[in-house]
């Protein structure tokens, strides 16, 4: 039950973020909802790394070598890379939002249709 409740919490956060990304018109709010989704994925990755046994450990439960036990932390390493990518994404995303605002005087994405015309 302990792993499941973390995963269900992560699913709740992911669904809320997805709803925000799909419905909001302000580009900054969309980026904020995207960050909520990133956080949901991170919670899932860290919870998996805390509670799930890696295949190598399942095959040989007595193995306690560094390489096997380090696999326990793979989820945390994944979460760290996700945080790095999220930082890059939000920096670029906000730069694009500011550039669009300078050009069109709006951050409403339904008004930004340069590619369509």
């Amino acid at each position: 039950m302990t792993l499941e409740r973390f995963l269900i919490l992560s699913a709740v956060l992911f669904a809320i973020g997805l709803y925000g990304v799909l419905t909001k018109r302000n580009a900054i709010t969309i980026l904020m909802s995207l960050e909520v989704m990133f956080n949901a994925v991170n919670v899932a990755a860290v919870a998996m790394s805390r509670y799930i046994a890696p295949a190598a450990l399942r095959a040989d439960p007595s193995a306690t070598g560094d390489s096997v036990v380090q696999m326990l932390l793979t989820g945390q390493v994944f979460a760290m890379f996700i945080i790095a990518v999220a930082a890059a994404e939000v920096a670029l995303g906000l730069a694009i939002v500011i550039a669009v605002y300078r050009y069109r005087e709006t951050v409403d994405i339904t008004q930004v249709n340069l590619m369509r015309r």
Binding site: Y51, R58, P61, T64
Partner: peptide, 16 residues
Amino acid sequence: WPEIPSESLARAEEVF
């Protein structure tokens, strides 16, 4: 979900 086997639980706690 495949939980951490009880034989290696002590070692896992040590890592965490």
